[in-house]
Nucleic acid binder design. Structure first.
Lengths: 365, 365
DNA sequence: TGTTAGCACTCATTCTCTTGGAGTGCTAAC
DNA sequence: GTTAGCACTCCAAGAGAATGAGTGCTAACA
């Protein structure tokens, strides 16, 4: 009777060595390499036996008969779930890492202390920096507005029949919409509407406004009911239409640094996905549903975006202020430097929330 | 003594045939092909002689000894300057072209009649449509704001120490900025500032405001001088910072449809240029300085953007309203379908200005 | 004098064949 | 359980050789 093959500690070590080596070189790794590379002091023959087992268990694959092994998706998954933690605790390269980290944080702070008064610009800059630092493609989704509270709303007549509606949300995100109205509106009317809107709507989220706006307002509109209705509907529509997800991407061309991604077909699909940013919404939705995990790692087919099946994606959710949440993502080859990416993402996440709050209180907007 | 080689009519016809054939196939074209292709009824041997002359004149080149000829930049230039006009007048394919054109216009109108209240969205949509229709990469620059007149300006206090400044420009382009101020501002103060700003600044261009704002306003600020100064400076700065060029791109991945552009190196550079949109400002500046020509064609090295030296670029300047000008560009391989692109660009140009004016008058904003 | 047929020549492309090397799997010995 | 040794596989790189598209040149023709 065959002895059952199980994943013992030695196999783990060997697998880890294979993966680490492959992440560095991008080349299939052979038994001889591992034999020398590890402190296990085993001959290549022994390693070969173990590798055969690892392959049987599905953690590694052979591109072709006479080649070394490369990690399978399952292998990466094991690595990411179990082995990365250990390695993070190890002290190897710790100094170099710290230096890198500091440099990164400095760079971030540079962005954040520059007078960036628009969240849009800030996020775009962050995406760019992240892409530069990681050498992968990046994306950042703007905060979800529907959960964001309205801080201030103002109507003003720009010209006859056209009313400008400005909405300021928590975090000083500004949205505007020009609304066409049929009726005449005098200054007094506008003033009253402004007061009405501000007293009724402020502090509510867009979502809440959208749901209850009409009924709620009708009760208080009084003699201006007709007029208010018109504007109301327009505002409701304006709010709805402002509620779509902004997505910023950067570093799309970084994928050309990885041969396994840079053939025309794949590259074209990938870059197109990054250009047509809306194709990334799946990723954001999924990543946010897993939010409690903090950092989410998708390997190969796990990614909710089909065009990225040959990539790995690491995402994090940031929070600027209460409820002002968005997603950051790094897209690279499956052999990406998960450790570094995870660490960098944690940094960005912290910096983003921290800096934004600071910015919000010291008034240096 | 050698007889001087000149570009007679027959040579022109042959050159034209070569170029047209090359535009279609993308393959070097040989003498035999031309011999059959044209109505000149000349043997391939004769064509060969003529081709040798054309090469000597610099209109065509041979990729290698035993290959056919392809047009040189000089050849394309001649074609674009002289031959395209003739062909445009010809009736060949005219019907098919008309159908195409109609389809295109319909598609554009679809975009334009949809409620697109933001110029940003409109232009992004146009870029996308243009990319889809031409199969090349496209860019559109937003209108230059510094020549645009201020229509309406409004300050309002969002929270203590923070004032929201909303500017509406001609064409209902809305810009906002949150301004931090040290001093207290009561409602009355804001009201007065608003009146002051609107009466003084409306109708001026950002440029004009920027230049004369301080001196002009100081005269009328009266007792609020100190306060006004602060806000003024902030507004001036806001205006300046809003004055940078918006650029929208689309269809970057279309370049993968042309093998001569899709090797990693070139593709990466190109796509990067399109991603880092600011690298395109050269192109816009140059194209606008040549504006009187209507449509501008850059072939290969003529392009003011270095990374596009293997491409051709066709640009047009559009005008939404008085002074609201921007640039549209199509970026493709040198063997792009100049005729089609020029025609399409003319359409877009017309549609853009026409539709926008309509939008502006029928109130369906 | 312009045009053409014919021929030798060039050169990219494609194919096959060979070689080298990296790496494996298996077996037998320790 | 571990290891040395060996046969085997298969990719990658290189060398010819064949193919064929296309040219340049020359000599003959109208």
């Amino acid at each position: 009777m065959e002895k059952e093959v199980v994943l013992d500690e030695r196999k783990m070590k060997i697998l880890q060595a294979i993966i680490k080596n492959y992440l560095e070189t991008g080349e299939p790794v052979g038994s001889r390499t591992i034999s020398k590379y590890t402190d296990l002091n085993l001959s290549s023959a022994t390693i070969r036996n173990e590798m055969a087992d690892l392959e049987e268990l599905g953690y590694i694959v052979q591109p072709h008969t006479s080649a070394g092994r490369i990690p399978s998706d399952k292998g990466y998954r094991l690595y990411v779930d179990n082995m990365m933690l250990e390695r993070e605790a190890s002290l190897l390269n710790q100094e170099a890492k710290l230096a890198d980290r500091e440099k990164e944080i400095d760079e971030m702070k540079e962005f954040l202390t520059e007078k960036v008064d628009k969240v849009e610009t800030l996020l775009q800059n962050m995406a760019k920096m992240l892409a530069n630092n990681t050498n992968y493609a990046t994306m950042i989704s703007g905060p979800h507005l529907h959960k964001n509270k309205l801080k201030f709303i103002q109507l003003s007549e720009v010209e006859d029949g056209k009313v400008l509606c400005v909405m300021v949300l928590e975090g000083n995100i500004i949205k505007n919409k020009i609304i066409a109205i049929d009726e005449e509106l005098d200054n007094e009317g506008i003033l009253k509407l402004n007061i009405l809107f501000n007293s009724t709507l402020n502090g509510l989220t867009l979502e809440e406004i959208n749901l209850g706006i009409i009924s709620r307002m009708n009760m208080q509109a009084g003699k201006q009911l007709n007029l208010a209705r018109n504007v109301l509907e327009a505002v409701a529509e304006a709010i709805t239409s402002e509620d779509d997800l902004q997505i910023y991407t950067s570093g799309a061309t970084n994928i050309f640094k990885y041969p396994e991604l840079s053939d025309s077909q794949r590259a074209s699909e990938l870059i197109n996905t990054l250009e047509e940013k809306q194709l990334l919404t799946n990723l954001i939705t999924d990543s946010e549903s897993e939010e409690e995990k903090g950092i989410q790692i998708y390997i190969g087919n796990e990614t909710p975006v089909k065009t990225m099946k040959d990539c790995s994606v690491v995402t994090a959710t940031y929070e600027l202020e209460d409820g002002l949440k968005g997603t950051i993502g790094v897209i690279g080859p499956k052999r990406m430097d998960y450790e570094k990416v995870v660490e960098t993402l944690k940094n960005v996440k912290n910096q983003l929330s921290h800096a934004y709050k600071k910015e919000d209180t010291d008034g240096d907007l």
